[in-house]
Design a binder for these strands. Structure first.
Lengths: 146, 146
DNA sequence: TATTGTTATACTCTATAACTATA
DNA sequence: TATAGTTATAGAGTATAACAATA
């Protein structure tokens, strides 16, 4: 619906810059009280798996837009930490669905909570700006409601 | 200036999701006519080095918020492709400054141009939204003017 | 002594290609 | 034949620790 303009390039540049600058601070540094120290990718996966909502590995690969073999490794590491579990789907024995363990669910909630904290630079924005940002990003990601 | 709210967490989640979804598409897939196929990190570094504006490696490490040893590797790879050059600073012989080669400068311009193209999802936003996004991101990154 | 950059090491992330098991 | 997931392999990204050169 829009047109490419000078702001297009500028926005992307800033987006990348922001992401690179923040990725090391959060949400990976979720360690703290928890022993675990998850990588950004692992944290991201943990976010994408919602409690009581089994997620096929193929869907995860799509969302991450990465190769399926990559997902195997990510899941291996998260599973070895006891955060998620693989389960063979009943309807199609080829697919494996992922679900959070109790520990995984706990850590995920902890992450979400932490992301809302004051330390997050995003909280420096006014509420109006935050709302606007969410609207824009939803349009970008192609999510309507969630 | 703001307060943590439900949108804070939501915004970050979307930001991460968007970045993960896009990182493989651009601007790394800048190959095309060029033989090179740069990684996202390498593209990012290329952006950060402006033509005729030598950048100390330590500054680059700060901007990327990563370890200095990491920068060594990134620069090694970009230098071996002939895109940038290391030069020992005259004022302080410990520091090395980076500058684009002619080829690097050309490729950087190509990247910037490509980012403005229609293919970029960001260009789906209205001009107003793009402008708003830039404003918000500038606040986040802590950049006033450029 | 402190700082800049490098090297050595180890682990994670990522893609490609070949494979297994299901469908 | 096609699809979901795995394995093997290779390269890139990242951090820690020890080191050299310079300040």
């Amino acid at each position: 619906m829009g047109r490419p303009g000078p702001d297009t390039s500028r926005a992307w540049q800033l987006l990348v810059k922001f992401f690179f600058a923040q990725r090391s601070h959060l949400p990976s540094s979720c360690g703290g009280e928890d022993v675990e120290q998850l990588s950004p990718a692992q944290c991201h996966v943990l976010h994408l798996i919602e409690p009581d909502r089994p997620l096929p590995m193929s869907r995860l690969a799509e969302t991450l837009s990465c190769d399926r073999s990559n997902v195997t490794g990510l899941v291996d590491r998260l599973e070895s930490r006891g955060l998620i579990q693989r389960r063979t789907s009943a309807s199609d024995r080829r697919v494996k669905v992922l679900q959070l363990t109790r520990e995984g669910s706990r850590l995920r909630a902890h992450l979400l909570k932490r992301m809302t904290g004051r330390s997050l630079p995003l909280s420096r924005l006014s509420l109006d700006q935050q709302r606007t940002l969410v609207t824009i990003l939803e349009a970008l990601v192609g999510e309507k409601e969630r």
